[in-house]
Amino acid sequence: MAQGVLEVDRISKRYGEVVALRDMAFEVRAGELFGFVGSNGAGKTTTMRIALGVLAADSGEVRWNGAPITLETRRRIGYMPEERGLYPKMKVLEQLVYLAELHGVTTNDAHRSAENWIARLGLRDRRGDEVQKLSLGNQQRVQLAAALVHEPDVLVLDEPFSGLDPVAVDVMSQVLREKASAGVPVVFSSHQLDLVERLCDRVGIVRSGSMVACGTVDELRAGGAVQLVVDAPAAQPGWAADVPGVRVVEVEGTRTVLDLAPGADDQAVLHAALATGPVHEFTRRRPSLTELFRSVVTEERVA
């Protein structure tokens, strides 16, 4: 399967009265790291399962290189489920060899690839252990190796960083970057938005089964409200509540983060802050991905 584009084209899925997906649409290009983020129950896992053929969509289509995904193309996708899909009593090496062979890799090549990923992911001392005897972090490393062992042309990873220590996060991040650099489309979901912001070329934010925002981190941040960071040590709680055109986003110690409405006067905010005493910081900025995500979730709950 050559390098290409993974397209999710307006897929929908219902479970009785519950709408899991509603016209979900996005694409992951060759060599791109695509972050797929949303609150629990937003539809991320359902979308991934439909892309893998584990679930059938009620409508819409998933395509690879412009053609509907078939059983043969699915064999070239590396999938890492959020719930570990490993055989707990099988040993690490024999399990990875077996899974590679299921994807059509010859026994010799399967052994070679399994040993490579075992070494690369820091599992050499655990290669003969049963999976159930590993720590949760090492089980997660094996799960990633299982997604990579057949050298897939597409990677679909559901919460790959869950349960990993900082060293393992660095290793996994490097692996994903290398795969993308080799032309592999990589899509992964994660609640660790700082990682998503750092790693991804583009990000899609999902709410209630639909894609509500999609673009580069810079594009998404540019579309968010301008924020003001004000450090006013003498100010009393609620000092900004009556300032027109602002909304308090966060208060941490003496620092207050405010959303500034379009056309609002930031000098009015400064005047209100100075009325309380000295101002040590007054900065305009764009919101982080975490703040944008929190805003989307808040909009959903208000609606």
Rank of each mutant, 00 (worst) to 15 (best):
G245R: 05
K133Q: 15
L176H: 06
D129I: 01
E300Q: 13
H280C: 05
A114T: 09
E281N: 09
I118L: 15
V248F: 00
L292N: 00
D9E: 15
A261I: 13
V296N: 01
G263V: 04
V186I: 13
P278M: 12
M172V: 14
L52A: 14
S210N: 02
L6N: 02
Q3S: 11
E252V: 15
V97R: 06
R127V: 11
M90S: 14
S181Q: 13
A264P: 03
V169S: 09
A264L: 12
G238V: 12
E82A: 10
R141T: 04
E115C: 10
A240H: 03
L199D: 02
G224R: 08
G43N: 13
R14H: 15
V217R: 00
K89A: 10
G122Y: 14
G60T: 06
D266M: 12
S173M: 10
E72A: 13
V212Q: 04
T47Y: 03
P233D: 08
Y87P: 01
N65P: 01
G41P: 02
W239E: 11
L274Y: 04
R177N: 04
W239S: 10
G31K: 05
S208G: 07
P278A: 08
A110Q: 08
G277T: 07
Q227F: 04
E197H: 10
L96D: 00
R84F: 05
G43R: 07
D265T: 09
R63L: 15
E7A: 07
R84C: 13
A235W: 02
P152H: 07
L270W: 11
D58Y: 09
A222I: 01
D265Y: 06
L148T: 14
A272T: 02
V226K: 13
P287I: 04
Y79V: 03
F282A: 03
I50N: 09
A119S: 14
H191V: 08
L121Q: 01
S113C: 04
T47P: 04
M90R: 14
V142Q: 08
G31F: 03
Y15A: 04
R285A: 03
T216W: 02
S113R: 12
G128A: 13
V167M: 11
F26C: 09
G183K: 02
G41N: 05
G66K: 06
G43T: 07
